[in-house]
Amino acid sequence: MEKTVAHIWPALLDGLTTTMTISLAALLFGAPLALMLAAAVRGNRWLRVPAGVYISFWRGTPILVQLLIIFYIIPFLGLELSPTVAAIVALALNTAAFQSEIYRAGLQAIPPGEVEAAKMLGLSPSTIFLHIEAPQAFRTMLPALIGEMQALVKNSSLVSVIAVSDLTRRAQQVAASTFRPLDAYASALILYVTIGVLLAAVGLSLERRLSHRSGGQ
Rank of each mutant, 00 (worst) to 15 (best):
M1T: 14
M1E: 11
V5D: 00
H7L: 12
I8P: 01
A11N: 10
D14S: 12
G15I: 12
L16R: 00
L16M: 13
T17H: 11
T19C: 06
M20N: 04
M20D: 05
M20L: 15
T21I: 13
T21R: 14
T21V: 12
I22Y: 02
I22W: 01
I22D: 07
L24Q: 03
A25N: 06
L27Y: 09
L28Q: 04
F29G: 01
G30N: 08
L33D: 05
M36D: 06
N44C: 03
R45K: 14
L47M: 13
R48V: 08
P50F: 08
Y54M: 08
Y54W: 11
W58Q: 01
G60E: 12
P62M: 04
L64N: 06
Q66T: 04
L67G: 01
Y72F: 15
F76K: 11
G78I: 06
L79T: 11
E80P: 00
S82C: 06
V85S: 05
A87F: 05
I88W: 05
I88C: 04
L91S: 04
N94K: 05
T95I: 12
A97V: 07
Q99F: 03
E101Q: 14
R104T: 11
A105S: 15
A105T: 10
G106Y: 03
L107I: 15
Q108N: 12
Q108L: 15
P111M: 08
G113E: 12
G113I: 11
G113V: 12
V115I: 15
V115A: 06
V115G: 00
A118C: 05
G122D: 09
G122L: 06
G122M: 06
P125M: 01
P125A: 00
S126W: 15
T127R: 13
I128M: 07
I128E: 09
L130W: 12
H131G: 13
A134L: 15
P135N: 03
Q136G: 03
F138Q: 03
F138P: 02
R139I: 04
T140K: 12
T140A: 13
M141N: 09
L142D: 05
P143A: 05
I146E: 03
M149Y: 13
Q150T: 10
A151V: 04
K154L: 11
N155G: 09
L158S: 10
L158G: 02
V161T: 14
V164C: 02
S165G: 04
S165M: 11
L167R: 07
T168H: 08
R169M: 14
R170A: 10
A171D: 02
Q173P: 01
Q173T: 15
V174W: 00
A175E: 10
S177A: 14
S177M: 13
L182D: 08
A186I: 14
A186C: 13
S187R: 02
S187D: 09
A188F: 06
I190H: 00
L191W: 03
Y192C: 05
V193F: 10
V197A: 10
V197K: 04
V197H: 09
L198V: 15
V202E: 01
G203T: 11
G203W: 08
L204T: 14
L204G: 12
L206S: 09
L206V: 07
E207M: 08
R208L: 14
R209D: 03
L210I: 13
L210V: 09
S211P: 00
R213G: 01
S214H: 12
G216F: 13
G216H: 14
Q217L: 14
